[in-house]
């Protein structure tokens, strides 16, 4: 656990956290524009201060199923990626000092399982998420197909 402060959010009835320095803004949902050739958990592209940013339905990505909530968008620091995660709700920011216990997770995406006064959190490993998204895109590359419409 190296982060000093964590941003807590929920997806599909579970609590997650991201290192606060990896998130640059929490936004209300906004219109996104679909694009082709990507897995279905991409909701589309949004305009974040002029940056074209991929919007990921994090619940669908995790296989947790989307909940009928307007949700919030967590925009990842633009120096790291052009990516926003649609999550169900955003909670508080917590100090690393308030963590009462931490255990290693076997899931590559989760850096650690943290015990805090807010409940048990799953700390997301952002670099693993980005690499895994890139691998999935390469695997989903469109294939040429003969024939007209």
């Amino acid at each position: 656990m190296t982060a000093e402060r964590l941003l807590v959010f929920s997806v599909g009835r579970e609590l997650f956290a991201l290192n606060l320095t990896e998130v640059c803004e929490v936004m209300e949902p906004q219109q996104s524009y679909p694009f082709a050739g990507a897995p279905p958990y991409y909701l589309g592209l949004i305009n974040f201060h002029g940056n074209l940013t991929a919007l990921l339905d994090f619940a669908q990505y995790l296989g947790a199923g989307s909940r009928p909530l307007p949700g919030k968008l967590l925009v990842i620091d633009t120096k790291l990626a052009h990516l926003a995660l649609k999550v169900d709700a955003v909670g508080s920011i917590i100090d690393a000092q308030s963590i009462t216990g931490a255990t290693r997770s076997e899931e590559p995406l989760i850096e650690a399982l943290l015990e805090t006064p807010q409940g048990n959190l799953r700390l997301v490993r952002l670099e693993t998420l980005l690499s895994s998204l890139e691998d999935d895109l390469r695997a989903a590359a469109p294939k040429s197909a003969p024939g007209g419409n």
Partner: peptide
Amino acid sequence: LGRPLDGMAGVAGGATLGDGEIV
């Protein structure tokens, strides 16, 4: 498009149209 979409095959980038739509 930045990470992760930069590596997407067959896509050279993106642009915003006059009505704000992104392609």
